[in-house]
Simulated assay, not measured.
Amino acid sequence: MTGDLVADTALVRLDRSALSEAKSILFHAYRHEPTFQYLFDSSRPGYDQRVRATIREGLELHFAHDQDALGLVDEDTLVAVAFIGSPEARFSLADQLNWRIRMMLTAGLSSTKRYIDYHEQVHACLPKDTHHHLPFIGVHPKYQSKGYGRMLMQVIEGICRESPLSSGIGLDTGNARYLRFYLGLGYEKVGEVRLGNVTETVLFKPCH
């Protein structure tokens, strides 16, 4: 994290007014990810629509449960976002009836089932105590490789350290480049989930 980035970048707490920008950043962050390509079958027509629907419904569920959403703004442009699950929010997607109905109507039944199964397998790898988790994080395509992801992770870890309820942060990735990034930040592998030909690595970092 350089001095210039600190000087020029503002941390903001996001609300629903930032949904459009946040969804655009996350769509570009996830549409080429091996995990999403498997879960939402990139070989079939309508893949982009299914990815957009999943991100939209995920963010709506996030705000409905009053979870933290953070962004980095550089010269009035939202350049990075992170949606953080609190230690208290340990709900199962399978139990979210309204979310499931909307997902089945927009992403399809098979994609919804795959997504729920993936979500449950990831959480089964993580510690059973209370901790933060990171369902969505992304950096605007034009601003990647400038340190914004690292900066955002430092902020998230600071939130974790301030919480007496949290033992750490759990996350997962099927991207080898991002895996190296998280390992470099001190995250440790706690499990793997097989998704077709994709290996999803589940990671955890204690914050106390």
Score class of each variant (00 low, 15 high):
residue 138 G to C: 07
residue 43 S to K: 09
residue 112 T to Q: 06
residue 94 A to I: 07
residue 153 M to L: 03
residue 47 Y to K: 14
residue 93 L to Q: 11
residue 98 N to K: 15
residue 153 M to K: 08
residue 60 E to G: 08
residue 122 V to A: 09
residue 126 L to A: 09
residue 97 L to F: 11
residue 46 G to Y: 14
residue 154 Q to C: 05
residue 99 W to R: 09
residue 108 G to V: 10
residue 123 H to D: 13
residue 127 P to R: 01
residue 94 A to D: 04
residue 140 H to G: 08
residue 70 L to M: 09
residue 110 S to V: 12
residue 144 Q to K: 14
residue 125 C to S: 10
residue 100 R to E: 12
residue 99 W to T: 06
residue 70 L to P: 06
residue 146 K to G: 12
residue 156 I to R: 00
residue 44 R to E: 15
residue 92 S to I: 09
residue 74 D to K: 15
residue 110 S to P: 09
residue 108 G to F: 05
residue 70 L to R: 05
residue 69 A to Q: 01
residue 57 E to A: 05
residue 68 D to L: 14
residue 128 K to S: 15
residue 87 P to A: 05
residue 85 G to A: 10
residue 147 G to V: 00
residue 120 E to I: 11
residue 81 V to I: 05
residue 87 P to S: 04
residue 139 V to S: 02
residue 110 S to K: 13
residue 130 T to Y: 14
residue 87 P to T: 08
residue 93 L to Y: 10
residue 61 L to T: 06
residue 134 L to N: 04
residue 129 D to W: 08
residue 55 I to W: 02
residue 97 L to V: 15
residue 77 T to E: 15
residue 148 Y to C: 04
residue 136 F to E: 05
residue 156 I to E: 03
residue 41 D to L: 07
residue 90 R to Q: 14
residue 141 P to R: 08
residue 71 G to K: 02
residue 92 S to K: 15
residue 78 L to K: 04
residue 136 F to S: 06
residue 84 I to W: 00
residue 58 G to K: 01
residue 116 I to V: 15
residue 93 L to M: 14
residue 142 K to M: 12
residue 69 A to Y: 04
residue 94 A to C: 00
residue 148 Y to I: 00
residue 96 Q to Y: 01
